[in-house]
Design a protein around this nucleic acid. Structure first.
Length: 319
DNA sequence: GGTATTTGACCTGT
DNA sequence: ACAGGTCAAATACC
């Protein structure tokens, strides 16, 4: 069994995982170096954040790779698959289904055959209107959800194919009288350059950001400045990115006061607020979430970020 | 003709 | 068995 792991004999995904971890290690060292020089961190907090987000992305990628199959099993599957003259994936499937398995399609024709993400990082945002998060999304499905009036919509990053970006999001209109949009992000964007936004929609890295982070672990409010190092930078919203929310270019032609047809539910149109008017204020009593909550102290509208959090040494990594 | 969306099928997890 | 998530053929749009 060990012989499979000799150099040159490693499964490609294992190599990929090792590469991700090695790169992450280098970046972590770089981060450590930068954090050892506080004056450097102060004037270049965005690159510190960028590195942190890259590291998180690497964790995520590695987890995804590791979750896709067991390395210990893989070589066996390969050899068995070869023996049966079929693809390893088909073989896996036939193994799962047993002797009475249905007809096993070729890998390309297998519909709905996928690995559900298990441990990828997620965040959730509830907004009063559809907003642009700066990414281009492609809708790949919609589904009626139990006890929900409105269908849930599924989007993946447009760059999934060309850059292997694994980020996805789900958008669902709530049942409330005044409908809100619950957006759940899964995974990290790996399609952007390091100095650009890497993570979904959380927008608060600006060092001048005075918003607050509520850490439910410690029940303390922390100035975003303090933890902002681990967020990506805020980003100007571009018109074309509204297409990710199912809006046509025509509908996005004006950034002011436009109304979007509702791509999610066929319910009456909901006015889309220009990004500039969507402040991220909210009432704290609305927040009954675990994890880390990020908010600014505005009064218009509401925008909720929910993150899981990882404690890694002295750092609080938000996911 | 290329790209995006729709939608039924099919898979996984509970 | 059921609910939810994803795939991919069909269709729509530019």
């Amino acid at each position: 069994m060990e012989s499979y792991y000799q150099p040159g004999c490693l499964p490609s995904n294992r190599i990929k995982a090792i590469q991700e971890l090695t790169e992450g290690q280098q970046l972590a060292n770089k981060l450590r170096e930068m954090l050892g020089q506080p004056e450097k961190v102060e004037c270049d907090c965005k690159s510190v954040d960028s590195i942190a987000v890259q590291i998180l992305g690497m964790f995520d990628n590695t987890l995804s790779i590791l979750n896709s199959y067991s390395f210990n099993e893989y070589p066996d599957i390969l050899t068995e698959a070869t023996r049966y003259n079929t693809s390893s994936l088909d073989y896996q499937k036939s193994q799962n289904c047993g002797e009475n398995a249905k007809f096993v399609r070729s890998e390309k024709n297998k519909r709905g055959c996928y690995k559900r993400r298990g441990n990828s990082s997620t965040s959730m945002k509830i907004t009063s209107s559809l907003i642009d998060d700066g990414y281009v999304w492609r809708k790949y499905g919609q589904k009626a959800i139990l006890n929900a009036k409105n269908q849930r919509n599924y989007f993946r990053c447009t760059h999934k194919d060309e850059k292997g970006c694994r980020a996805t999001k789900q958008v669902q209109k709530t049942n409330d009288e005044i409908p809100k949009y619950k957006t759940t992000y899964n995974g990290y964007h790996t399609c952007k350059k390091s100095h650009e936004v890497v993570y979904g929609i959380s927008d608060s890295l600006d060092c001048s950001d005075n918003s607050l982070i509520l850490d439910f672990k410690t029940n303390t409010l922390i100035e975003n400045k303090q933890v902002g190092l681990f967020y990506h930078s805020s980003k100007q919203i571009s018109k074309e990115n509204f297409s990710s929310l199912g809006l046509s270019q025509e509908q996005c032609s004006s950034s002011d006061n436009y109304t979007a047809s509702d791509p999610f539910t066929q319910l009456p149109d909901v006015p889309l607020e220009p990004m500039s008017t969507i402040s991220s204020g909210l009432d704290y009593e609305d927040m009954i979430f675990s994890g880390v909550f990020s908010s600014s102290s505005g009064t218009q509208g509401y925008e909720i970020d929910m993150f899981g959090s990882y404690d890694v040494g002295d750092f609080l990594f938000q996911l």
